[in-house]
């Protein structure tokens, strides 16, 4: 049995997708909290708060981030640049969740150390299980 995560962060600008992803995550019951953010900037605002205000239930610390590539203003790649500058102290698994079938995108993702996985939309219960087994088996969580 996999441990339950504290929080999963979903970063995607598409509202129906977020609705769907959130629903699948809730159904899987793999996490206590789900936070859905509609842009990279929102996530960049959120992450420091989750660090500094520990215990604040509005900003639970995420263990896993599902990140979309194609977003207005700041895309997934640009977000990762900024994310690296944040120097987040705890280890967060970042999984790209994208519609892109472009092989170059996948190649590019494997070249970035912050990215742990690459999944095509839509998110399914099987994909969640695979991610959980790959990254969170027997890992003690805070």
């Amino acid at each position: 049995m996999n441990p339950k995560l504290n929080c999963v962060l979903v970063i995607d600008d598409d509202e129906p997708t977020n609705f769907f992803t959130q629903m699948i995550l809730e159904e899987s019951g793999c996490t206590e909290n789900i936070r859905v953010l509609q842009s990279g900037q929102e996530a960049l605002d959120y992450l420091p708060k989750s660090e500094s205000e520990k215990g604040n239930t509005d900003y639970p610390c995420p263990d896993l981030i599902f990140l979309d590539i194609n977003m207005p203003a700041m895309d997934g790649w640009e977000f990762l640049e900024e994310y690296r500058k944040l120097n987040v102290s705890r280890k967060i698994i970042v999984v790209m969740l994208t519609t892109s079938l472009f092989p170059e995108d996948k190649l590019r993702a494997t070249a970035i150390p912050e990215i742990s996985g690459f999944e095509n939309k839509p998110l399914t219960p099987e994909k969640i299980t695979a991610v959980m087994e790959k990254y969170f088996t027997n890992v003690p969580l805070k």
């Binding site: 129906p16 194609n70 892109s100 079938l101």
Partner: peptide
């Protein structure tokens, strides 16, 4: 164009199919 086809056309289609399945 290929990129647009792969992503921007897929996106609404995926939503349609996801919710139809749902």
């Amino acid at each position: 164009f290929a990129y647009v086809a792969s992503h921007d056309l897929q996106e609404p289609l995926r939503t349609t199919s996801s919710f139809a399945d749902l």
